[in-house]
């Protein structure tokens, strides 16, 4: 009997979400197959790669990142430079200085910084908060207002502040709401249910279902993403068909393999190479598990992952 290949194409598909405006706008999602399974059906919108900068500019960056931004002093210059690297599809501005347990910068200061960055580039934008839910409720509301007309992703709306962030980003200012659940599939679904019940259009929601560095409890991230995609595609669960955006750099550039200098542990070898390796491996795994976009930092990692995506799709 001849072998007849059966297509693994699903009757359900991931919703498409567009970020940004004009020529540079990008579309996430739309696929009806497992990640990179282009042999089952074409994947129209390849996964996208973003570059992350923060309100601290280059202050807290390792030398191996700083060197790529030589001559840049203002946030606008840093943003322009970041946007120019090969493979960058969008820019993520992380307002980590807003954390009350850290630098505790004021909302006004951070929004001014955000505007400076946004005005400097025409790439699609992702704005990421301070990791503090109370501060984020205020900060992200202002960010959504400041970026009116940019169709940006406002990240993260969490269980504790989804009403405020969702209403500002998704209802008042027509941005894309980034729903964040920390490696909890049930919460990932619940947040989408709550946001849609709030009135946010399902095509204006993207998910961050959790993130970790390869080797740091990563298997939970992998199984979460796989379960989300299985529900979305094989069970046609409309509440989990939103595309996934995964911040990678903020995780991988915090682990010892990436931050320990060669001087401290010579046998580990070149620090830059280690940092890039951790970032590339984590991002590649995220994409293989179903992320529709990853946010990275090192230009070499970005070029590498971008090339990987192009080769596979």
């Amino acid at each position: 009997m001849p072998f007849t290949a059966k297509s693994g194409k699903f009757n359900a598909s991931i919703k498409t979400v567009t970020i940004g405006t004009g020529d540079k706008a990008i579309t996430l999602g739309g696929e009806n197959v497992l990640p990179f399974y282009t042999f089952d059906a074409p994947i129209e919108n390849a996964p996208k790669v973003g570059i992350e900068i923060t309100d601290f500019g280059l202050e807290n960056e390792p030398e191996c990142i700083k060197k790529y931004y030589e001559g840049c002093t203002t946030l606008a210059e840093i943003a322009k430079k970041a946007a120019s690297f090969e493979g960058v599809d969008f820019l993520c501005f992380r307002m980590e200085g807003g954390d009350p347990n850290g630098a505790n910068k004021s909302t006004e200061e951070l929004i001014a910084a955000l505007k400076e960055v946004a005005d400097a580039v025409d790439l699609p934008l992702v704005v990421s908060g301070s990791k503090n839910v109370e501060k984020d409720a205020e900060l992200l509301t202002k960010a959504a207002e400041a970026l009116q007309g940019r169709n940006a992703v406002i990240l993260p709306a969490r269980e504790e502040n989804y009403k405020t962030v969702g209403a500002a980003a998704g209802l008042a200012y027509n941005q894309v709401v980034g729903a964040e659940s920390s490696v909890d599939i049930n919460l990932a679904k619940q947040l989408n249910v709550l946001l849609t019940q709030l009135g946010v259009n399902a095509s204006s929601i993207a998910m961050n279902v959790g993130t970790a560095t390869a080797g740091y409890g990563y298997e939970y991230v992998a199984s979460t993403m796989q379960r989300v995609k299985a529900a979305a595609l094989s069970q046609n669960d409309t509440q989990l068909q939103m595309p996934i955006i995964t911040p990678v750099a903020s995780e991988t550039w915090a682990v010892k393999e990436s931050v320990t200098s060669e001087a401290d542990i010579p046998e580990w070898g070149d620090q830059e190479r280690r940092g890039v390796d951790m970032e590339v491996q984590t991002a590649a795994a995220d994409l293989a598990c179903g992320s529709n976009a990853v946010i990275l930092k090192h230009p070499t990692s970005i070029a590498t992952i971008s090339k990987m995506i192009k080769e596979l799709i």
Binding site: Q197, D237, L240
Partner: peptide
């Protein structure tokens, strides 16, 4: 396990 649980599962 036919549908993924969420707290609002009865409403959807």
């Amino acid at each position: 396990n036919n549908t993924l649980y969420a707290d609002s599962y009865l409403e959807i």
